[in-house]
Design a binder for these strands. Sequence first.
RNA 1: UCCUCCUUAGCUCAGCCGGUUAGAGCACAUGACUGUUAAUCAUGGGGUCCCUGGUUCGAGUCCAGGAGGGAGAGCCA
Length: 478
Amino acid sequence: MSQRTKIAELLQSTEFGKEITVKGWVRTFRNNQFIAINDGSCLGNIQAVVELNTMDEALLKRLTTGASVAVSGLLIESLGKGQKVELKVKTLEILGDCDAEKFPLQPKKHSLDFLREKAHLRFRTSTFSAVFKVRHVLAFGIHKFFNERGFVYMHTPIITASDAEGAGEMFKVTTLPFDSTPRDEEGKVDFREDFFGRATNLTVSGQLEAELGAMAFSEVYTFGPTFRAENSNTARHAAEFWMIEPEVAFNDLNDNMQLAEDMLKYVIRYALEQCPDELEFLKTRLLEEEKQKPQEERSELDLLAKLHFCLDNEFQRLSYTEAIDILRNSNHNKKKKFKYLIEGWGADLQSEHERYLVEKHFKKPVILTDYPKDIKAFYMRQNEDGKTVRAMDILFPGIGEIVGGSQREERLSFLEKRMEEMHIPLDELYWYLDTRRFGTVPHAGFGLGFERLIMFVTGMGNIRDVIPFPRTPKNAEF
RNA sequence: UCCUCCUUAGCUCAGCCGGUUAGAGCACAUGACUGUUAAUCAUGGGGUCCCUGGUUCGAGUCCAGGAGGGAGAGCCA
């Protein structure tokens, strides 16, 4: 067995008569004659054909779903329908047996639920092979986009000492013994004896550190894991997820929106170019899945049409105040079909309101701007009206909020005042405030939930199915 | 965390008003067939009906509690 040829290459090849070797895993073995082999280089399988009575019966018995094999033979034009090329087997070696009675994957449809419990094996199914290939391509596309625009990729810390951001519950990082934690004079846990000499957590955002970088490189972005210890049990939340956070000096909110829209369109287009087979497969999968649903719950557009529609249309931009007006005057609101009726200005929008705007009213991605300051973070730039801040959320159909960002408050006095109002300790964040003390500039940035982007592009409905080993409340298997 | 639904063979699921020995397809075993596409056909093995308790002559089925999972909501990305 010499060098192996990848199946992706073979399926495109017309070098008939050439002797080649493939290595991979058996997907099915049909008719005691046809082996479908997959090596992950593409979604498709190569069909290896065993000639009758040329192979040891005992060897053929071992060709079970999941077994790993090395097969050598001649590449020929397929005699049957359904594939262009196939491999006429000369030698066949089982690299690793796979007991079909114990191996959970069968050549049939499995529920996503079931496969989630077998996350260590689910890469070997077509659906997850496609999903994680798209994940890779989207990740690469994001780096490509920012690199082409001259952004510097910045690694912000995973372990942070600041607990001042108020971005949600954090996971504590400690080496203190749980059964006899050291106590200080007041009886509280004495973190001076901890590994870092102070209380530390896993990061909930790299933004504050990214802003420091932006004050030197002008354009930076982060792309790394993020942790939230919130007890969120939904299809859109995970305790460990990946986030992309660009931060750009001299940008205002409009530049920020344009950057986000350009980036999303760039990576969606990149996925369409790089993963046509995977997305076609996922489109079909979604259509099959939606056949189970009643007519009114099915999507109007199929997956590919939805992605193209997203590329071909400008995102709808409007302010929070305009959105409230639309919602308040909608028939939906007047007929009291919202669970939470829109009555006045100032309240945060509920999921049902966001969905109405995106899926019913505009029927395309929507960017909402200029939210009331009281429902947004301390670092967002205040508008002249004294009521709103230069925030923006991008809402996608089926996913909800995919991007949250803002122009940052660059004026020291405004920032300090806001932090005091929101009880954020100024002394702990002296390093953040220094950016406003020493050569402050207008700047803006946003956070993109990477898994939510993958959900949108692949059409998968649950975040647990777009990250290899999901961490959610009560689940850290594998 | 709240609300709601679900849990029956290795997998997907059926099981009516509480009534005899709990079924089907796939998977597995044995055999047949051989250009198949989740191959097909025949035969066979395979069950703690999630757990605990209760009602009843009798519980997969009804009731209570618990565990696990899904969908929706909140929080958010």
